[in-house]
Structures are given as C-alpha cells and as structure tokens.
Design a protein around this nucleic acid. Structure first.
Length: 120
RNA sequence: UAAGUCUGCAAGAUGAUCGCUGUGGGUUUACCCCCAUGGAGGAAAGUCCGAACACCAGAGAGCAGGAUGCUCCAUAACGUGGAGUCACGGUGACGUGGGGAAAGUGCAACAGAAAGCAAACCGCCGCUUUGCGGUAAGGGUGAAACGGUGCGGUAAGAGCGCACCAGUUCCCUGGGUGACCAGGGAAGCUAUGUAAACCCCAUCCGGUGCAAGACCAAAUAGGGAAGCGAUUGAGGGCUGCUCGUCCGAUGCUUUCGGGUAGGUCGCUGGAGGUAUCUGGCAACAGAUAUCCAAGAUGAAUGAUCAUCACUUUAUUUUGCGAUAAAGUACAGAAUUCGGCUUAUUGCAGACUUAUGCC
RNA sequence: CGGGGCGUAGCGCAGUCUGGCAGCGCACUUGGUUUGGGACCAAGGUGUCGCAGGUUCGAAUCCUGCCGCCCCGA
C-alpha cells in the first residue's frame, strides 16, 4: 500500500529548487509536456517532481486537472521511475482539453526518453 | 400549437479500490502509523461598489478632488433591494430611465437668409422707386426655425383680437408621509437642445490593505554594551595529549537589539444557516427552537471501475420497449460578509399575443 | 490584494483632452522610365476605429459593462 503514496518530500516546493533545475537545463519533450531534469541524486532512490502549468494552458479548472493527472501518473508509476532525477514537468498549451488516457500516454513517452538519455 | 414576458428550483445519484488535505482520538520525545469524521459555487469568476477587521495618520472646521442624484421605506452600509410616482418603448404580459437649462459661461459642423435678449434671401405690401420702410402667412435648408386649427382683422401681415386645443409660471381647494395626482382660477402670449460640456444645489467620503498585522527565529555580514588582551601573547591551527612550531591585534569571548531565509498565529462561530410564529403590501425586522457545514500555501477536494438516471444518434419493433455508442453546461475557495456585473445547462409555474378547434 | 498602459488599413503609428472630413510612413496595385530588375516619377485601392449598450441631431472621441495583450507594487 505504502508504495503508492505521494508525500510532500517527493515534490519540488520552493522557487530556488526550480531555478536550480533551470540552470542545469536538461530538456526532453513529448507531445504535451516538457521535462527539465537534473543530475541523479545518489542519496535518494527517487527524484522529486515539480509541475508547472502556465496561465496560457487554460483556466484554473483545466490547469488543476492537468496537475492532478501528472501527480496521479507519478504516484502510480513510482516503482518504474527509480532512475528519474529531480524533474520539472511543464505542460504545453496543447495539453488542455485532452483526456486522461492521452495525458498518461504522453507522460509515459516523456519518462521513457529521460530514462534512455541517462544511460548514455 | 407558435412566438414571447416574468418568477422560482436544480446543478446527476449510489457503491468499491488507490490517493491528497483539515479536525478529534490512540500511539510516540517527535515523525511515521492506526481509527473516526469533514472537504468548492450559483456564480467560488470579474474585482465594479459597500462594510467588518488590522495597521498608520489625525484638535476642530473648510478648500480641492471623487462618488451618488424622482419619492418614501429597508439595511451595519451601499452605486443594492422593496413599494410607489412621472416619462419613454412595446399590440400586450412587461421593460428601461429620473435633481437644476426661468443663476452664469460654452457649443450646435455641413446646409440655410437666419441656430437664440434675434434676424429679412426669395416672396408679399406700401412709398417721395438705382432705393427706403413694413411683414414671419408661403418657399426652401436642417436633427432642431420662436405654439396648432379656424374666424375676424389688415396696404400686406402678425396672439393684433376671439373660440377651441397644447404648453409655461403663479395662486386656491381636495387627496397622499412624500414624489405627485384631481378640480378651479389668474397672468402672459411662448420660454430651442445639450449638465454621460463647464457649472449650480443636496448628501456621502482620512489613507493603506490579510503580502494588513502579531509572534518565534538559522547561517552570514553590520551595530551597542561588558569582560579579556598589547609581544611579559587573549585566542586559534597542526595533534589523542604534552613539547614544539605556525598565525595572531579593525582581535577574542559573553551578551543585547534590529532583522533576512524559514516557521507559527491571523484562519474561520458569523450583521451564520434551517424551521415555525408574529409585525409589514413588500424588501425586511423580531421571537423561539435547532444545527456547526472547506481552510489549502508551487497551493488539498482527484483517478480508475461498476450499477442506475437523463439527452442524442444508430439498429430492431406497428407501437410499448430492447441493445450499442457517445455525451451530461459555465466553471475551482485564498481574510470574511452584503450586493452588482458577466459566463452558462436543464426543468417547472404564472401571465401575454396570434391562430385553430370545442 | 491593488495600480497603470495599449487595442485605428497587411505592419508601425497620429487623430480621442476640446464630438461633425479617418489620416501619415512603409508595404500593395496600375502606368511610366530601363534590354531586364532595383531605385525613381505619376496615379490608385484600404478600415464593423477590440465588442455590446447608452447620452447626443450626430460617437474612433463622452458614459457604463465586457474581451484580449503588456507592465508595475506589496
């Protein structure tokens, strides 16, 4: 049961955390999302996640829905994302008015790309 | 049946699993964990008004600036609401609007003779006829041209006179708390529009906003005070310790205060909700009973599945119905209330108009 | 939680305060010039003035309510 939990310590919450990631600046794309990620943290077995959905994506209902879907995907797939470092997920404009299956598929592709690039 | 007007109601339901978050309890130094229970709206939105609350400023009054503007009532307050009143729009149900133009100033393009204490282009009339005078009936311009119709009157005309009508101001009587309404009389013969132009009158307004404001407070660098210390070395580094050696005076230690990162409070029980009764046409107020119903902070309230409900489409059926698929608006609390405005789905009721039938 | 600015022709901007003709530059079209092109010369087209109501005889301009974009403060 505990493996599906989603705690605050697993999230990026402060502005300087986000700025630090932007300095490192490793970027990957998928259809609806952009991922900015850092180097792997050796002390923690799992990276932290931050979600950015700008005002251009839609109204507050739409923005909150996307954030919840991203968190849901992260929570349910934690066990397969062990190699993922700290990451900031940025929603693209086209992510609005997509259903949950499309969102999850796009996230799957994004994390797969990041996992492969770490192996290089 | 169609088109419309007004008012009200709802905002899919139930269950399971996995999560997020508030509160209470258990356990614990504390975290974790376990149990119970709560978790978006009618607009939570826009931030357009009004207040509460907090801090700052302030003797009192005024000016400037801003807002509001028929009347009465309601309210903590309002630019809001209720009831009325007048005007305008609509066949109608009904809707929209409201101080002052007879204090002063300004503006009214083009056209037109003339756009406001009048004036004479054409026309008409008179005379002593290259012109002068009278005239506002008629012409045409314009959004707007100084009451309308008729009769009298006149050189031609004119409220110049009269009758009726319309309008203005004043007075009286009656009704109404009042805006105002009804009736009667007098004056004068007419007074353009614009105040969402300046302005005048009346009423109201100190400023900033929960990132208000209060408290705790790391690292680093300043500041105040006290103590130690000046080559006779305070203190520190190299080391487990001693010796030794090196650094060393804008120094070291203690303490006080401000205060950043960060955190806690403010933070949800209130001009509160629901029901009944009483007063009031109503808005609303009062009494009694009962209930406690979100509190996040890179910001919770979600995901998946099942069943049912509603709508649409397709297939099948004479039909009822059945099956399948898709869909179920606008939209997310951010200190809290009262309104306004805007976005938006469905349903119900009352009423109006038109047509048809009985 | 507050404050400010902008929206006018394809693009960049005037005009809004003080209501009455919607303009300027570049670009575009046509003609001339040139062997041809550029440059140059001449002529021309152009707009729901962000949207909707209202005030006025008349609104890009005044008033009210919305929409979009940009910026600032705590």
């Amino acid at each position: 049961m505990a493996e599906y939990k989603f705690e605050k310590s697993r999230r990026l919450l402060k502005r300087h955390d986000f700025l630090k990631l932007a300095d490192i600046g490793n970027v990957s794309h998928s259809k609806y999302f952009l991922g900015i990620y850092g180097k792997k943290n050796k002390n923690s077995d799992l990276g932290r996640i931050g979600i950015t959905v700008s005002k251009k994506v839609g109204n507050s209902v739409e923005r909150n829905r996307i954030k919840r879907l991203v968190r849901e995907y992260w929570r349910l797939n934690k066990h397969s994302l062990q190699s993922i470092p700290d990451i900031n997920i940025i929603a693209k404009k086209s992510a609005s008015s997509q259903d949950s299956k499309e969102i999850f598929k796009s996230l799957f592709i994004l994390f797969k790309k990041i996992g492969e690039s770490k192996n290089d």
